[in-house]
Design a protein around this nucleic acid. Structure first.
Lengths: 145, 145
DNA sequence: CTCGATTAAATTGCGTGCAATTTAATCTCG
DNA sequence: CGAGATTAAATTGCACGCAATTTAATCGAG
């Protein structure tokens, strides 16, 4: 019986599987990231730091799609752990520049095998992975890295 | 230069787009759900209620992949709004049975156009949607159900 | 040069998510 | 039957995510 409520059924939605899959992947990261004593949000923040070395909170937010309300406490935590420094830009004191420390860069080597550990739990074919990445990029917006 | 750190780059990951896409979709729900005065979590909970009418917290958790720590406050909020009732099962007092009210069922009609409103912002082809749903199911279901 | 507008972070408040623990009810097995 | 194991929710504590507001610095039109 496909009635007028059919569209409301959970199983017909894309949103819910997307939401559930996202949480499921973060769950799989947990044991791996626990060894580095990083949360998932701290991990993706460090990925940006490893790649860029130094960046304003605003730019970090653009890359990660997070605002200062989320980032400020995450960055303070990472500073506390010694992986980054937080310093106002002398040219514009409104801007806070985040910079990775030597200790932060050292962490990168300890994180080298994280992607492989996650990837091997996914069991997606390369074609599926490429297809998924493309569709997700379309949902997220367009620009990207 | 694809060096040994290449795998760590944010753009090469699937996890991050998945996480970003999930948040992006929930963001798109917000204005639509605001009209119903529901959060996204409350909305998916009501979807289950509309479909099943009555269910234990445990079973609800299995469907939504959420535990009682998350569900208890959500269900209390929905009870407070008058959309559901919460009552211990007389046959087994450990079990709390959640049941949709008439007011809760009435909300269903007001939510009828929510899926269409979201779908039309996605701009995915039917093939892409089917492909995406399949891949996500694979990710979600790999070690459970 | 100045004052209102704009901008970048920080702060506040609320609602998740989830691990870990607690409480209460039920089950199991001797 | 009865004590320990198991189970279902609730509770506690922490870390997001994001809207809204606040604070401080800079910009820009007049």
């Amino acid at each position: 019986m496909d009635n007028k409520y059919e569209a409301l059924r959970l199983c017909n939605q894309l949103c819910f599987p997307l939401y559930a899959a996202s949480k499921e992947i973060i769950r799989r990261y947990k044991p791996v990231l626990d060894e580095l004593e990083l949360t998932y949000t701290q991990y993706i923040t460090m990925m940006v730091m490893w790649e860029h070395g130094s960046m304003s909170v605003k730019d970090m937010g653009k890359v990660l799609y997070l605002d200062s309300g989320t980032l400020t406490p995450v960055l303070k935590k990472l500073e506390q752990k010694g992986f980054i420094t937080r310093k106002r830009d002398s040219a514009d004191e409104r801007v806070l520049v985040v910079t990775v420390t030597d200790e932060g860069m050292a962490l990168r080597d300890r994180a080298l095998d994280v992607p492989a550990k996650i990837a091997c739990t996914l069991e997606l074919s390369p074609e599926e992975a490429i297809m998924l990445a493309g569709i997700l990029r379309k949902i997220i917006g367009e620009q990207e890295d």
